[in-house]
């Protein structure tokens, strides 16, 4: 099998406009660390549940992608719109979705936010600005641009952000959306979580363009490539893009380099990459990076242990709650087809 050429999680020299710098105070980083660990543990627990047969269908975890979600949540307002892909647990939890209800939704249980009808690929909570994860590659991207258009029509300063993978760049509607968003200076942020694979295929085998952030430069759009695993870098890039968007300067494209440590979805045989490759990437992954940042800033290891122990308990309780939770009433099968 062709060995994909993988650079570590470092942006190309010509594209790096943000550098890792201490832009956030330690007190801000601590809750971010806690949330990142919570997301990680929720995802790992979900994988265990999937292995034991309790979760059906396609479940995509974001283990290794958490940097994008955590940095974004710190940089945006709670009422800013967000859309994302089927790999969207991390964005939703980072924005404040209740883990209990999140796990219920994946299991198809009644207390799930969509009563178990949406599942893992359709996380949302409009009260948190979470306007929906999507099962169709690229489909959520024009939605976010449309929400940005809505803000513009209403004269509001709510902006929109949309997350998508590297694979989405090869869908036609992405380019239609980029063009209109730039032409109409829409307040939207396009965030590409480039994990260098779309499903089981490395992008080096399908793309005629080496650097994804360069695509939108053809549309005249502001575009940067960053280390998507460093929460401070992500925070800074998203905050800056949000400022531009709110000031009426239009969209920004952010390519956050990252790596998916888990399989594409639960049950992925992962025959397309080596364990050495995964091990090599562990040194750059967001949780390791953030942990090291906090240690370097003098946070005692025991404090972090304490945080993690709390999270373990919370996640354990959430899983137990979800396993015990009731199935939806059968009448629910027929409701919500139309708004009545």
């Amino acid at each position: 099998m062709a060995e994909p050429s993988l650079k570590a999680s470092v942006p190309s020299a010509d594209a790096a406009v943000t550098e890792s710098a201490a832009v956030l105070a330690t007190e801000q980083l601590l809750p971010m660390y806690r949330m990142m660990f919570l997301i990680r543990r929720v995802e790992e627990s979900l994988l265990e549940l999937a292995e034991s047969g309790k979760i059906g269908g396609a479940m995509h975890t974001a283990i290794g992608h958490e940097g994008a979600a955590i940095g974004m949540a710190a940089a945006l307002r709670k009422d800013d719109y967000l859309t994302c892909t089927y790999r969207g647990h991390h964005h939703s939890l980072a924005r404040g979705m209740d883990p209990q209800r999140a796990i219920c939704e994946v299991l198809g249980k009644a207390p799930g936010f969509a009563k178990g009808k949406g599942g893992s690929m359709h996380f949302l909570d409009p009260s948190l600005g979470l306007m929906g994860a999507n099962g169709i590659v690229g489909a959520q991207v024009p939605h976010a641009a449309g929400m940005a258009l809505a803000s513009k029509i209403r004269g509001e300063d709510r902006i929109a952000i949309t997350f998508f993978g590297d694979g989405a760049l090869y869908q036609g509607l992405m380019h239609e959306t980029f063009n209109m968003a730039q032409k109409w200076k829409l307040p939207v942020i396009f965030y590409c979580e480039n994990n260098r694979y779309s499903e089981m295929t490395p992008i080096s085998r399908t793309s005629s363009v080496d650097e994804i952030y360069q695509f939108v430069r053809a549309y005249g759009m502001e575009s940067i490539q960053i280390d998507g695993n460093d929460v401070e870098v992500v925070y800074e890039a998203v905050a800056k893009a949000a400022e531009r968007a709110r000031a009426g300067e239009g969209p920004t494209f952010i390519e956050g380099i990252t790596y998916r440590l888990s399989g594409h979805m639960a049950g992925d045989l992962e025959t397309y990459r080596s364990s050495e490759e995964i091990e090599m990437q562990r040194a750059y992954e967001p949780l390791t990076q953030l942990h090291q940042k906090l240690i370097d800033r003098g946070v005692p290891e025991e404090d972090l242990n304490q945080l993690r122990a709390e999270v373990e308990e919370e996640v354990q309780a959430a899983v137990e709650y979800a396993l015990e939770a009731p199935w939806p009433d059968l009448a629910e099968a027929y409701t919500d087809v139309y708004q009545v």
Partner: peptide
């Protein structure tokens, strides 16, 4: 595709 998608989002 793009403007139908944007209309859905709006």
């Amino acid at each position: 595709q793009g403007f139908m998608g944007m209309a859905v989002g709006a």
